Simulated scan of single mutants.
Amino acid sequence: MISRKIRLMHPDDFNAILALQSDCYPTEFIETAQTLQQKQQLAPHSSWVITLNEQISGYLFCHPWFGEKLPALNSPLNHLPETTDRFYIHDLAISPGARGNKLAEQLIQHAITWAIHANFSQVMLVAVLGADHFWRKHQFKPLPTPLPAAYGEDAICMLRQL
């Protein structure tokens, strides 16, 4: 029997997170450990890992945000906005070997439930590498927001009302 568990991300998870990131993204989308750790430290209650048989098989970095101006990719986020109006999904990755087990769906549902309980009314993200088709299945719709070039030519800002 396969065991799955979603839990808050811990500082000692970052070696596994960096390995997953490397397995899932091309070099231009790889963020440094320092950048990811800083984001997790700013919003420690809204970033999770999912384990499959006690091995980290996916992660989801999220944080509160304000407006449609997006946080830069692979740049330190020194602070969160004082006023927030949305929940921002920064990064979702599932180990290639664990795909097909609905881990992404479980992490997304977990984050959406958390955002609703935290009184957010919308969730925003940037879909890269053609992932907008995946996010549309989760009720996200394109948002006509200009994106920094670092997100890639096919990147699409997306929003879901809660």
Rank of each mutant, 00 (worst) to 15 (best):
E68S: 12
P148M: 10
F140Y: 14
I116M: 14
R4P: 00
M158C: 03
Q34T: 13
S95T: 13
S47V: 01
L92I: 15
L125P: 09
L42Y: 05
K141Y: 04
Q38R: 11
A115R: 09
P148I: 09
A33D: 10
H138D: 02
S47E: 05
A104Q: 11
Y59T: 03
A111M: 07
M124I: 06
L143G: 04
K39G: 03
R160H: 07
R99P: 05
N101T: 04
D85C: 09
E31A: 09
Q122T: 06
I30W: 14
A127L: 07
H79S: 07
R160Q: 13
L60G: 03
E68Y: 13
R7M: 05
Q40Y: 10
A93D: 07
T51V: 03
E105Q: 15
T51R: 01
W65P: 08
A150H: 08
L36D: 00
L129W: 00
A19M: 14
A19Y: 14
P142T: 09
S57F: 11
D154H: 01
R99W: 07
L73G: 10
Q21D: 15
T51M: 04
N74F: 12
Q55L: 13
M9A: 00
P81V: 03
A115L: 08
F87N: 08
D85Y: 08
R136S: 02
D91A: 06
L52A: 07
H63M: 13
P64C: 13
A127E: 03
D13M: 04
Q41F: 03
K5S: 03
D91R: 02
R86I: 03
P81C: 03
L159S: 06
H10Y: 01
L125E: 12
P142K: 12
L36K: 01
Q40W: 05
K137I: 01
L129C: 00
N53L: 04
I50N: 05
Q40R: 07
T51C: 12
L162N: 13
Q109T: 15
T32L: 14
Q109V: 07
S95L: 13
R7Y: 02
L147M: 15
E31Q: 13
D85T: 06
T32N: 10
D154S: 02
P96L: 01
I156C: 05
W65S: 15
A104C: 11
I156H: 01
E68I: 09
T27H: 12
L162P: 10
K39M: 12
N78F: 02
P146F: 11
Y59R: 01
S22A: 15
L147D: 14
D13P: 08
Y88E: 06
T51K: 04
A43W: 14
I6N: 10
H10R: 06
D12C: 01
M124K: 06
I156M: 05
Q40G: 09
A19V: 13
Q106V: 06
I2G: 00
P144Y: 09
L36S: 02
K5W: 00
L147C: 13
T27P: 07
L73H: 14
A149V: 12
Q139P: 02
S3K: 06
E54I: 01
C157T: 07
P71S: 03
Y25R: 13
Q109H: 15
Q34R: 11
I56T: 11
A118T: 12
H79C: 02
L42H: 07
N15G: 13
A72G: 04
L107F: 09
A127S: 11
L147K: 14
N78M: 01
L125I: 11
T83P: 00
F66C: 03
D12E: 04
L52I: 08
K102M: 10
Q21G: 14
P142C: 08
G67N: 07
